[in-house]
Design a protein around this nucleic acid. Structure first.
Length: 869
RNA sequence: GGGCAGUUAGCUCAGUGGUAGAGCAUCUCGUUUACACCGAGAGGGUCGGGAGUUCGAAACUCUCACUGCCCACCA
């Protein structure tokens, strides 16, 4: 089958993926004798679609997985999707709203049916898109976080943690999202900078005509104030401690308390205390035993605790009303513009409300201790290592994790309530009923907790729940702990930390040995991609335009640890060109009848160029392996790029053109090409697989081939010789270009001080690639010639009448000056006794050699200049 | 306020103690039968500033500046 002239990825990417998948090449083999290697996919939102962040992380994972598979490991890359509680529920609720429906009126059961239907409808999108990316996931093992089996794992974990008192119910202030009407965890709160105001209110002090002035960014909360705090040592205000103020608008008498929390430097030095609506005030309230007056309903509208005029008002409406009312009373002291940060729900985008409610909590502090130790002791390593600091910082100051959500889509909390409010936490209703029977002594109707768990709760179990836990499955025994977790730093807290906690607690083992944290994808200016900025680049459009391999290779070359990836389509285009180059080289090989011979022994080649390229190939394979082991995909990819384009195409194929009919050249060309396909496969799976087919017999798959490891004797003399030839040709080309010798013109070459052997052996090569019509040896530099010196050899091009000798003189002088400068610098260094006494021997030798060489160059160029006349 | 990164050619980035590199862009030349999504060549950098360690610093230490991000606080 002859290769098409042009590289057209769209012609083969789809069919090849199908072939891989059908062949079972993605499947792990738990019975295999090979060692296990396992990566758990960070499950994307089941109803989501592929964005650049996905494309990056899955490219990295697929590259690692394909490499390991070729190395002979039994690889499990576990696929799956996440139910993504809030995100998915929001999407469906938005759909309902368009139909004029809402979930509460349709009821829980009907709503959940609707969400499941949506999941069935859109759930295949992301997995189809993953296939377009070439992701070699073990699809028959696909899991979903709400699978019945995974739900059993969730219940088991919940029940056990409850019985260990590591999960409990508590009434306290939570981050309440008044739009989504659910509690959220600290991590789901996003601080946003807001240009607001600072209102100064005068509160009348009881029994005097004095006022105490408090400043606030949230005037509406004053309706729930139960104290004013001042610092116990505040010089001007401490005398007021113990007195009361009459809370305006409300008329309530509230105390002035002394508390360290009141910072004399801030605001007016006195601070209003609203224990039910501010986290700090809540603490102050506890210290002084203040009442907590909840003035908001779930929608953050004022409730019946406030004066009638304000009831039912939305919080922002109430703000205006309170300010207006205070102003009317003459109690508004002043208003200042004020920039401050306000907590917002990361999903809803509305300011969150600290709100008193009863929620389920997980004692993260207790669970964090072993998880911290595991990283400190190196059972789990972060790559790059500095991310461990981020992990430590958060884990050492971890707060209780609010795990309940007032949603319907998710794992419903396995807790049932008796008529007296008694809680029965059980694996299922039957078990709960049994417990209730013992307690009440009779059949009793139980009511299940309405709430569901935070999405990240089930995600935290992913590394073992997908492997069948709590059953002791062969998969669990074999693939857990997994080899590496690949993810972005943005979810170290959300996910990595929680998997560590749950994994250690329930399996006694870390969930992964390595956490590889990669960059985030930005636009080419380094800005976050977002819909509102309009700078989103769709990976599928890129794949359509340039092919999947070009996109993948771009991610690989740019995934330097510790840096963001500024994605510029120009880079993708450049890598598409690289793919084209490879395609074209393969086509050339095919046209010249280069067939891969499995019996070809690279160690036995006799021609110098073949000895050279086979050793270079071996060195490439070693380099790429080493870089991949260290997660330096960037360096690995760059090394292949350099080899394929600049060594194999630019030099080897050109070198062998004059002798392309020789059997050894044909076999060697095919061999190198096949090695390139193998080494490049993890990075560019499609083009390499497509090119594999025409070069080997028997319909095998490249992705199932062994990663190349060679036993080859060193051939350093071949490398040296070829490098010398390359230098000679490059020098002649540069001289020709500098002197405007027409590219088509063939010129004679005289050489001086050269070992005849190099020129004899590679005469044809040098003549062809440097476009010479003859090569001859000489003892003297003839007059009126262009000259260059390389590796001690003087190259002379008698070009009288062709070139401008003034120009040539300037060029040579510049060149000579460069070498003289180096010689001088090196000589000065060698004259420094501190240097000669302290530098290591090999560095000294290197400098000696450099000096000799620089002096020789200087001298030979001098000779050439003199000959120029 | 605390922390972590980054600062190297016009742009995007490699380079962790011994003569400053690549890709893209730019310029010159070139349709030599794999490739113009190409080939050959060239220009371009006081490695953010300062100090220190060292025979020797882009690299190590300190310090300053700027950029980005994370965490916390904000009356």
């Amino acid at each position: 089958m002859a290769l098409e002239k042009n590289y057209d990825p769209s012609a083969f990417e789809g069919p090849l993926y199908e072939r891989w998948e059908k062949s079972g090449a993605f499947a792990c083999d738990p019975d295999s004798k090979a060692g296990p290697y396992c990566i758990m996919i960070p499950p994307p939102n089941v109803t989501g679609s592929l964005h650049m962040g996905h494309a990056l992380t899955f490219t990295v994972q697929d590259t690692l997985v394909r490499f390991k598979r070729m190395q002979g490991y039994d690889v499990l890359w576990q696929p799956g999707t996440d139910h993504a509680g809030i995100a998915t529920q929001m999407v469906v609720e938005r759909q309902l709203a368009q139909e004029g429906l809402d979930r509460r009126s349709m009821g829980r059961k009907a709503f959940l049916e609707r969400v499941w239907a949506w999941k069935e409808e859109s759930g295949g999108t992301i997995t189809r898109q993953l296939r377009r990316l070439g992701a070699s996931l073990d699809w028959p093992r696909e899991r979903f976080t709400m699978d019945p089996a995974l739900n059993r794992a969730v219940n088991k974990v919940f029940v056990q943690l409850y019985r260990e008192s590591l999960i409990y119910k508590d009434k306290r202030l939570v981050n309440w999202d008044p739009k989504l009407l659910t509690a959220i965890s600290d991590l789901e709160v996003e601080q946003r900078e807001i240009k607001g105001h600072l209102w100064h209110f005068k509160y009348p002090v009881e029994g005097s005509d004095d006022f105490i002035i408090v400043a606030t960014t949230r005037p509406e909360t004053m309706l729930g104030d139960t104290a004013v705090a001042v610092h116990p040592e505040h010089p001007a205000l401490k005398s007021l401690i113990g007195k009361n103020v009459r809370l305006p608008l409300v008329g309530r008498l509230i105390p002035i308390v002394g508390d360290d929390y009141a910072d004399p430097e801030k605001g007016t030095g006195a601070v209003k205390i609203t224990p039910a609506h501010d986290f700090n005030d809540f603490e102050v309230g506890k210290r002084h035993d203040l009442p907590k007056i909840n003035i908001f309903d779930a929608h953050a509208r004022l409730n019946d605790e406030v004066p009638e005029a304000f009831r039912r008002m939305d919080r922002f409406e109430a703000r205006k009303a309170v300010v207006a009312a205070m102003e009317e009373l003459g109690l508004l002291d002043k208003i200042e513009p004020y920039v401050h940060t306000v907590p917002h729900g990361d999903r809803s985008g509305v300011p969150i409300e600290p709100w008193l409610s009863e929620q389920w909590y997980c004692d993260a502090q207790t669970l964090a201790a072993p998880a911290l130790r595991a990283v400190e002791e190196g059972q789990t390593n972060f790559v790059p290592a500095q991310w461990a600091n981020t992990y430590y910082a958060w884990m050492r100051n971890i707060e209780p994790w609010c795990i309940s959500r007032q949603l319907w889509w998710g794992h419903q909390i396995p807790a049932w309530y008796g008529p007296d409010g008694r809680i029965f936490v059980a694996h299922d209703e039957e078990e709960a009923q049994k417990e209730a029977l013992e307690v009440y002594g009779k059949e009793t109707a139980l009511q299940r907790d309405e709430d569901v768990l935070d999405t990240w709760f089930s995600a935290a179990l992913w590394p073992f729940s997908t492997l069948g836990w709590p059953e002791q499955t062969p998969e669990l025994a074999r693939y857990y702990p997994t080899s590496v977790l690949v993810t972005g730093f943005d979810i170290i807290f959300f996910w990595v930390a929680r998997m560590m906690m749950m994994g250690l607690h329930f399996t006694g083992n870390v969930p992964f040995k390595t956490v590889y944290i990669h960059a985030l994808v930005r636009d080419k200016k380094g800005q976050k991609m977002s819909k509102s900025k309009g700078n989103i680049i769709d990976p599928l459009e890129i794949i359509d335009s340039y092919g999947c391999d070009a996109l993948r290779f771009t991610f690989c070359t740019m995934s330097t640890p510790g840096r963001n990836i500024k994605l510029d389509v120009a880079r993708v285009e450049g890598n598409r060109n690289f793919a084209t180059k490879l395609w074209s080289a393969a086509r050339y090989a095919q046209m010249n009848d280069c067939r891969y011979d499995p019996k070809f022994d690279p160690d036995k080649v006799t021609q110098t160029v073949n000895q050279w390229i086979t050793r270079e190939t071996a060195s490439l394979a070693r380099g790429v392996s080493a870089h991949l082991e260290e997660y330096r995909l960037d360096l690995a990819a760059q090394e292949v790029y350099e080899f394929v384009w600049h060594r194999f195409c630019d030099w080897y194929l050109e070198f062998t053109k004059p002798v392309r009919d020789l059997a050894e050249v044909k076999a060697c060309t095919a061999w190198v090409l096949v090695q390139i396909l193998k080494i490049l496969h993890p990075f560019m799976p499609f083009i390499t697989e497509a090119l594999w087919e025409p070069f080997v017999e028997g319909g095998s798959l490249l992705m199932k081939q062994d990663w190349p490891v060679y036993k080859m004797s060193a051939r350093t003399e071949a490398t040296e010789e070829i490098n010398k030839v390359i230098n000679i040709i490059s020098a002649i080309r540069a001289t020709r270009a500098a002197l405007n010798v027409p590219a088509g013109a063939k010129i004679p070459l005289l050489v001086k001080d050269a070992d005849a052997q190099t020129f004899e052996a590679h005469k044809e090569l040098i003549q062809t690639l440097a476009r010479l019509d003859s090569i001859a040896f000489t003892e003297n530099v003839p007059r009126a010639s262009a000259v260059d010196v390389v590796d001690g050899i003087t190259l002379i091009m008698p070009l009288e009448g062709v070139i401008d000798f003034d120009k040539e003189r300037v060029r040579l002088q510049k060149e000579a000056a460069k070498w003289a400068d180096l010689a001088e610098k090196t000589a000065a260094k060698l004259a420094n006794e501190d240097f000669t006494a302290r530098a290591p021997q090999e560095v000294l030798e290197e400098h000696q050699e450099r000096l000799t060489q620089a002096r020789a160059m200087e001298e030979k160029l001098g000779t050439a200049l003199r000959a120029l006349g």
